[in-house]
């Protein structure tokens, strides 16, 4: 139902700063979709056209490698996937497969972009969310670099 969907959207970091009235709009313009276990929400390499917020069930995120599919993450209720796709044109970077019977709120890219164009305050909030995430990613990257530079000789030893 719309009410629970709004609650769910609030917990999505990208949307957390958006005021509740606008979250209702996002929820109303999205659709509920359901998948059976084993069905694919989105496939690596396909153009991204929607973000999904899991409302029920679990999913695996996997990346195809030469050695076979490699599961990189598990998603559970309340998790969001594919949100980058609704902001820019990038192909899916991973395949998302339903692990159980699964329901999700699908936020279509065209609907979301329309929201952002029409209501700039949503855009601002999304931007803020992205910036927070970017700085966090930067920190993580720096930390990873440090670890890498410290760890490299050790790797060689092994």
């Amino acid at each position: 139902m719309l009410k629970s969907e709004i609650e769910l959207l609030k917990s999505v970091p990208l949307f957390s700063g958006i005021e509740p009235a606008r979250l209702k709009l996002i929820a109303y313009t999205s659709d509920q979709v359901a998948y059976r276990a084993g069905q694919v929400l989105c496939r690596q390499g396909d153009p991204g056209d929607a973000a999904y917020v899991l409302t029920e069930g679990e999913a695996d995120v996997s990346i195809a490698t030469e050695a076979g599919d490699y599961v990189v993450a598990h998603l559970k209720t309340g998790d969001v996937v594919g949100e980058i796709a609704i902001l820019c044109d990038v192909p899916r970077t991973a395949t998302v497969t339903a692990k159980t019977r699964l329901s999700a709120l699908r936020i279509r890219k065209d609907a979301f972009l329309q929201l952002v164009t029409q209501l700039p305050e949503i855009g601002t909030e999304v931007m803020r969310g992205l910036a927070v995430r970017l700085s966090r990613t930067n920190e993580e990257l720096a930390r990873a670099r440090n670890q890498a530079s410290e760890g490299t000789p050790r790797d060689k030893d092994q």
């Binding site: 719309l2 009235a21 209702k24 709009l25 109303y28 313009t29 609907a111 329309q114 929201l115 029409q118």
Partner: peptide, 19 residues
């Protein structure tokens, strides 16, 4: 009530109203 609550403050020519 619900629809006006969600869409009520948009101007009549806003394309979001198509939803």
């Amino acid at each position: 009530e619900t629809l006006i609550d969600i869409f009520g403050d948009l101007s009549p020519d806003n394309p979001l109203l198509d939803n």
